[in-house]
Design a protein around this nucleic acid. Structure first.
Lengths: 216, 216
DNA sequence: ACGATTATACGTACAGTGTACGATACATAG
DNA sequence: CTATGTATCGTACACTGTACGTATAATCGT
């Protein structure tokens, strides 16, 4: 049909923002074209004028998140630069947990490319060999994506965890051969606000590369 | 229809093995009931006699992989025990790359539970506090799952990488603002068999916890 | 002012997906 | 020889992405 008269037209940006919002709330599996179109008060096929396929929309969604990652301050030490960058990425993925599921799979766009470049640059300009820079890059991104994956895939929201844990502890046989698991569940139930261990382990990894660098 | 005369009946195991094999070859997205049934010379709905839903089949697939992870030797040091366990998990996920995509999402079965328990046990029996054991557990599984995720999601098979990298280097403008990325691609193209950096970073993480443990 | 062209929108249709329901036909028990 | 349980699957439905064709509004050339 026509571009109806009194209606604001669609745009890539509107669709993208709606898709991100929907995925934030409902997860990436639930994201589907018809539903998205309904939210945008349009027909499903209208979206294909702006994105030639769902895959292209997903590409744009990844780029949207990649754009939220800080680029490192060139005056900082490599440790500070990398640490801030990693935390920034961690936070971005925390805001958009679905992204880790498609991050590496979608085609590499300029923002994600810029992220990779900036990590490699910081390392290479501070004494890392090509091979070491690549290893450090992998180590750091594994940690970022791994953390995001665990946070995203864990099937319980923090709210529900208390109730589920309590129910589990009630139901489980005291003679079950999993004392340390039970102990762990009890501990986590009683300490709802455990600190995010992202930074802790990140520091261990950075320590490792620092030692490696000094060792040459 | 009937249970046809001269035909071996299906079974949970047959279906499970076929599903694992199919996912190994084609990825988990491509796994679908009809195709699987065709491979098993049966009708699609026959599978539902053994698994009440696709989700239950996926649960069983996760358990299948979890069963392949070594349980740690109780006489080893915690470092060795955890290192071996982690490498074993890394290898299992390397054989079945699709599993990291559903590992945490599927309902927790006995084998995955046993894996968690064994990690926590080793740590708790070697001086880790409840909180530290949990942190170490998370750190290690993040590394395992993150590594698996990157390996699985990277869209190019090792074979194709050389060709794709060469084509990329040809096509990219020499003035593109990504010198370190280009350098990295060239390096990886020339060194096809880079060592798996899983163990390297795992050691860094274990060093971190070792230091932490000594520090108390 | 008015016809031609482009930009935007979408109805319909099709080939997949998981799976609910009910109909089989075989094996065995009574 | 029924009758009942076990194993199998044909059909149908709701939902997915999207190819194709078409309809109108906006814009431009004259």
């Amino acid at each position: 049909m026509p571009r109806t008269k009194g209606k604001e037209p669609l745009s890539q940006e509107k669709i993208l923002l709606a898709a991100v919002k929907y995925a934030d709330q409902n997860g990436i599996d639930k994201l589907n074209i018809r539903q998205l179109a309904t939210l945008l008060n349009s027909g499903a096929m209208s979206l294909y004028y702006y994105f030639s396929s769902k895959g292209e929309l997903l590409d744009a969604m990844v780029e949207f998140v990649a754009a939220q990652i800080e680029t490192p301050d060139p005056n900082a030490t490599w440790r500070d630069g990398i640490a801030r960058l990693a935390m920034s990425a961690h936070e971005a993925m925390g805001r958009h947990p679905w992204v880790c599921r498609i991050w590496s799979k979608q085609t590499l766009g300029p923002n994600r490319l810029a992220f990779m470049e900036s990590v490699l640059r910081v390392l290479r300009q501070n004494g890392f060999s090509i091979a070491d820079a690549y290893e450090a890059y992998c180590a750091i991104t594994v940690h970022i994506e791994g953390s995001a994956l665990q946070a995203a895939e864990f099937p319980l929201k923090p709210k529900d965890y208390q109730r589920a844990a309590a129910a589990f502890l009630e139901s489980v046989d005291a003679s079950a051969p999993i004392p340390y698991f039970i102990e762990n569940v009890r501990y986590r139930m009683e300490h709802a606000d455990l600190p995010d261990q992202f930074t802790l382990v990140l520091d261990m990894i950075l320590n490792g590369f620092e030692a490696r660098l000094a060792h040459k």
